[in-house]
Design a protein around this nucleic acid. Structure first.
Lengths: 340, 340
DNA sequence: TTGAAAGCGCTAACAA
DNA sequence: TTGTTAGCGCTTTCAA
């Protein structure tokens, strides 16, 4: 049972396709169509369950009203929440979201960019470092000014980008920790994504803390586990984990070794998703607000689609969110230690 | 700088569009095209960064090679993992996935169905109860045999569906619990989704346990909290939570009231995602394997697209996964208590 | 108040 | 070995 086309509908109504199109789309000219005809068309459309063919429309306007979201990971809490927010904001603006997970595979990210090039989507949001690491290859495909926005990391020079400014949250964290008498503050991260790391180093400098970095690679489970094991051996007072996910992995694995959080070792995570709040203990975190990121990202993309030619590099400030995964030493600094 | 069309490319190469199409798509006839011409076309295409217009192709075949996934929630671990698996399997089969979160809003679910009707996607996977609860309205839009597969709940009579069989996991759980000396087994769920509930009742009957049910509504935070508070007051020995997410919420909130899991109250969750393993304590769970669901779901959808007319109702068995959120009473039953 | 025709970019069938 | 033509379903002039 094939769907009816506008043409067939017109034939059955005894009018031309043009008339049907005008009526069903409520074009200004529809006011000049005889009431009888208009009603007949409408009724017939409902009866036959007529639906305009999205493909034909898209072809005509050369637009699918779809935004692509290319992302290394969509199953982890931070990205899952982000994808959800993006879909919501996109919908508000009359777009759909097509999410392409790439499992942090550079080749796949470039493949996914073809979505944009073949015009299967109108624009692309990309959570990736290729704007920095694979600059030339990227430029061969898309010149700045295209409907491509990098998410997460700002300062993809020349390309549009919306990311977080890690500094405020990091500074707030350090100030809080030092007040609480904690000085051995280590970072566990994929150092290829250097923003968190840079904010960490800046904070270390400012507060006179000597940096300790534990490196692993996103998506490489073994390196993550090895990294946690090193932390367990060397036992800093506190470890900043690069995400809620990594924090959960860390606490879980430390627990298996009999190391308790926060009693034996404190953990601070970066992200602060709903999961961080529900974790046991609730995670103290540098909060990256995915709702803000989503909104700003889509705004920037739409402004590109509307022909706004100047690319922006938006930065969204981070904040500190208190949980229960940091051990408070001195009692006097018990300011807002637990919020719930 | 507008993208070049096949027509322009042909003009510049001094050949007809048809020839270009044949060459670039490596059609059988391409072997009959002069080597010189073929090379010239290929080279020019690369130089001009030619990309076929996806819309035009789609229009021709009346297919976008895209599958829609309509789902109430995509931010919660179980659904996030499922979306990830679906995207992966779809990609293997040459399709893309378009995820439409509806935040459990029935109207939105019907709206999203328009994706299928307007042919913006080739088929739809739907995680929803409307196949059961809004049968007539649904039938008015799509008759069985259409490229629509219900996920999660089997037995959407007449419609294709792929879901879980909760019984094996539930029975295994009960047998384990009774062996461990736990008899007060309660369920916390949205009873509108009656599968889990039915398996629970069946297990209660079989094992002579008197059912205790705590009801809340998905997506309604207040009802969830109220539900947990009732559980805290009435304190069954063990509570089966309808998802990893709900289990985490429960344990977190119980913790705030000073009730520890599993010392004071045991919790078993349903889902068994990666998050369940990383939780503290790791959750004992009835496992719903999202990779299996994804694969079976896509298979079923593709078989519909390929014209296989007989709708199936596939059921995937659940299993019990051991964690540390159940308090073991008797020592003799310490069989595989903790697995990690 | 309505209809006819052209065209969006591509492909497949048929000619040459 | 290559070109011509028609058409996918819809919208938008322009003409009647």
């Amino acid at each position: 049972m094939k769907p009816v086309s506008l043409g067939e509908l017109a034939a059955r109504a005894g009018v031309s396709p043009a008339t049907v199109s005008i009526v069903l789309n409520d074009r200004p000219l529809a006011r000049h169509v005889a009431d009888k005809t208009r009603l007949r068309i409408r009724q017939l459309a409902a009866e036959l369950n007529y639906r305009p063919n999205h493909l034909a429309k898209a072809m005509l306007h050369q637009s699918t009203r779809t935004i692509g979201f290319i992302c290394g990971d969509i199953a982890t809490p931070y990205y899952a929440e982000l994808a959800d927010e993006l879909a919501k904001v996109a919908e508000e603006r009359g777009y759909r979201l097509m999410t392409q997970p790439t499992r942090w595979d550079i080749e796949k990210e470039f493949e996914a960019l073809e979505l944009l090039l073949t015009r299967a989507v109108d624009g692309i949001l990309m959570y990736s470092m290729i704007g920095v690491t694979h600059r030339e290859r990227l430029e061969k495909l898309c010149r700045p000014g295209q409907a491509l926005v990098f998410l997460g990391n700002p300062s993809c020079n020349g390309f549009r980008s919306v990311g977080f400014d890690m500094e405020p949250g990091m500074m707030e964290l350090f100030s809080y920790l030092l007040e609480s008498g904690i000085r051995e503050i280590a970072l566990m991260d994929d150092l290829r994504f250097h923003q968190k790391c840079e904010a960490y180093r800046a904070a270390c400098r400012r507060y006179g803390v000597s940096p300790r970095e534990y490196e692993f690679h996103y998506g490489d489970l073994e390196s993550e586990i090895a990294c946690i094991d090193r932390v367990a051996d060397e036992r800093p007072e506190l470890i900043i984990a690069s995400s809620d996910y990594v924090a959960a992995m860390t606490i879980s694995r430390l627990g298996q070794k009999g190391i308790r959080v926060p009693e034996d070792l404190s953990v601070v995570s970066i992200d602060g998703t709903r999961w961080a709040e529900l974790y046991n203990p609730p995670l103290t975190a540098i909060k990256q607000d995915s709702a803000l990121l989503a909104r700003a990202g889509i705004e920037e993309l739409l402004s590109a689609l509307e022909g706004e030619s100047e690319p922006h590099a938006v930065e969204i400030p981070t904040t500190l969110k208190f949980g229960g995964s940091v051990k408070i030493n001195s009692t006097r600094s018990n300011r807002k230690g637990s919020e719930r």
